[in-house]
């Protein structure tokens, strides 16, 4: 139902993000999605990749602190009002969204894909399933 997101701790100074992307590039890791949250002193990069454990290990070995979180990868109709409809469902179920960001689909897709970090994955997934909104698992994400 959910996919694993990798969150990485970075200091907020020039070059930090690049140091991390270099480690990923050297290990030939393809990023499916990325979001960056920052304060004045540090940042948290959230990554969506196909090989979660492999990537987490590469980052750990390179000295980057990271943690794994279950998040929902939700298919959103690629039409005006598509996201609004999904949020309406989550709102109706009383789900709180901590943060969300878009990830890459394929070029000709009729759907967009978004990552949702919510307070209650089960409650959110049930509400979306009932409304026939598709949620991707790790293999579904890899197949995009």
């Amino acid at each position: 139902m959910s996919v694993k997101q990798i969150s990485v701790f970075l200091e907020n100074r020039p070059g930090c993000l690049h140091e991390m992307t270099k480690v990923l590039a050297d290990s030939n890791i393809d990023l499916r999605g990325l979001s960056l949250a920052e304060t004045s002193e540090f940042g948290i990069v959230r990554l969506i990749v196909d090989d979660v454990l492999g990537t987490a290990t590469v980052l750990k070995d390179a000295g980057f602190i990271n943690s794994l979180t279950d998040v929902l990868a939700v298919e959103v109709p690629n039409v005006p009002g598509g996201l609004n409809k999904v949020l309406e469902i989550l709102d109706g179920a009383g789900v709180n969204i901590e943060y969300m960001y878009a990830i890459l689909g394929n070029k000709k897709s009729e759907s967009a894909y978004m990552i949702f970090r919510v307070d209650d994955n089960t409650k959110a997934a049930d509400a979306l399933n009932n409304a026939r909104v598709k949620i991707l698992d790790q293999s579904g994400l890899s197949a995009l």
Binding site: F42, R46, N66, S67
Partner: peptide, 15 residues
Amino acid sequence: EMTPEMFTDNLGEVN
């Protein structure tokens, strides 16, 4: 120094 035990994906938690 940040530690794996103290780190989460949530900015608010780290703050």
